[in-house]
C-alpha cells in the first residue's frame, strides 16, 4: 500500500517536473525568437525541412479527404434533394475542422517526429553540449529557428489542405456526380464566413503549430540520450501531439463556434 502511494507520488512529481521544464523551455524559446528573426536564414533552412517537405503529403491527403467528403456528403444530401449544398458541407467541414486538425496530425507525424529525432540525436551525440561549451546557446541557435519555422508553416499547410480539399470535393461533386457548379460555389460563398470560419480555422492551425512544434522540440531536447530514448521520445511526440491537437480542437471549437 505504502509502495503504491509512493509510486503515485513519484509519478505526480515527475509529471509536474516535466510540465514545469516544458513550460520553462517554451519560455526560453519565445525569448529566443527576436534574435532568430534577425538571422532569418536559419529559419528559411528549417522552413525547407519542416514546411516544404510536408507539402506533398498535405496535398495528396487534402485532395483525397475532400473527394471522400464530396462522395459521402452527396450520398446523404441527395436523399433530401439538397445536393447543391455539397459545396457548403465540404467547405465548412474542411475550413473549420478537417483542414487544421488533419493537417496538424499529418504535420506531427511528418515534421514533428523528424524534429524530435533530430534534436534527440544531436543531444545523444553531444552536439548540443558541444555548442554550450563554445558558449553558443543551443536553444537560440538550434531550437528557436525550428520553433518559428513550425509556427509559420502550420497555417500555410492547413490553408493548402483546405483549398486542395475543396477542389477535390468540387472534382467529385461536379465531375463525377453532376452537381451544378454554379450552385456549388455560390452556396459555399454565402454560407462560409470569412471571419467566423476561415480566420478561426487559421487561428486554430496557428495554435496547433505552436503546440506540435513545442511538444516535438521539447521531447527531443528532453530525450534520454540513448538510441532507445530517442525512439521513445519520437513516439511520445506523435502520441502527445495527437492528444493535444484533438483536445485543444474541442476547446477551441467550443470557444469559437459553440455558443457558450
Amino acid at each position: 500500500m505504502i509502495d503504491f502511494i509512493r509510486s503515485l507520488g513519484r509519478w505526480g512529481l515527475d509529471t509536474l517536473q516535466r510540465l514545469g521544464s516544458g513550460h520553462l523551455f517554451l519560455w526560453y524559446m519565445v525569448k529566443g525568437i527576436p534574435e532568430v528573426l534577425l538571422r532569418f536564414s536559419l529559419v528559411i533552412q528549417q522552413l525547407q525541412s519542416v514546411g516544404v517537405r510536408s507539402v506533398m503529403i498535405i496535398l495528396v491527403s487534402g485532395l483525397f479527404v475532400g473527394m471522400v467528403l464530396g462522395l459521402q456528403g452527396y450520398n446523404t444530401l441527395v436523399d433530401f434533394g439538397a445536393e447543391e449544398s455539397l459545396g457548403v458541407l465540404v467547405s465548412l467541414s474542411l475550413v473549420r475542422e478537417l483542414g487544421p486538425v488533419v493537417s496538424a496530425l499529418l504535420f506531427a507525424g511528418r515534421a514533428g517526429s523528424a524534429l524530435t529525432a533530430e534534436i534527440g540525436l544531436m543531444k545523444s551525440t553531444e552536439q548540443l553540449s558541444g555548442m554550450e561549451m563554445m558558449a553558443v546557446d543551443p536553444i537560440r541557435r538550434i531550437i528557436a529557428p525550428r520553433f518559428v519555422a513550425g509556427i509559420i508553416s502550420m497555417p500555410l499547410l492547413a490553408a493548402i489542405f483546405s483549398a486542395v480539399g475543396i477542389f477535390g470535393g468540387f472534382i467529385v461533386g461536379y465531375g463525377l456526380l453532376g452537381v451544378d457548379d454554379g450552385a456549388f460555389w455560390s452556396q459555399m460563398q454565402v454560407k462560409t464566413d470569412w471571419y467566423d470560419d476561415v480566420l478561426n480555422g487559421v487561428i486554430k492551425s496557428i495554435v496547433f503549430g505552436v503546440v506540435v512544434t513545442w511538444i516535438a522540440l521539447f521531447e527531443g531536447y528532453d530525450a534520454s540520450p540513448t538510441s532507445e530514448g530517442v525512439g521513445r521520445a519520437t513516439t511520445r511526440t506523435v502520441v502527445h501531439s495527437a492528444f493535444a491537437i484533438l483536445g485543444l480542437d474541442f476547446v477551441l471549437t467550443a470557444l469559437m463556434f459553440g455558443e457558450i
Binding site: 522552413l47 514546411g51 516544404v52 507539402v55 467547405s91 475550413v95 509559420i152 508553416s153 497555417p155 500555410l156 499547410l157 490553408a159 493548402i160 483546405s162 483549398a163 486542395v164 475543396i166 460555389w185 459555399m188 460563398q189 454565402v190 462560409t192 464566413d193 470569412w194 470560419d197 476561415v198 487559421v202
Partner: peptide, 20 residues
Amino acid sequence: MFVAAGIVAIFVLAMKVSNF
C-alpha cells in the same frame, strides 16, 4: 514557392470560398 502557395491558398479561401 511554399510560402507563396500557402498565401495563395488563404487568398483562394477568402475570395472563392468565403464571403470575404
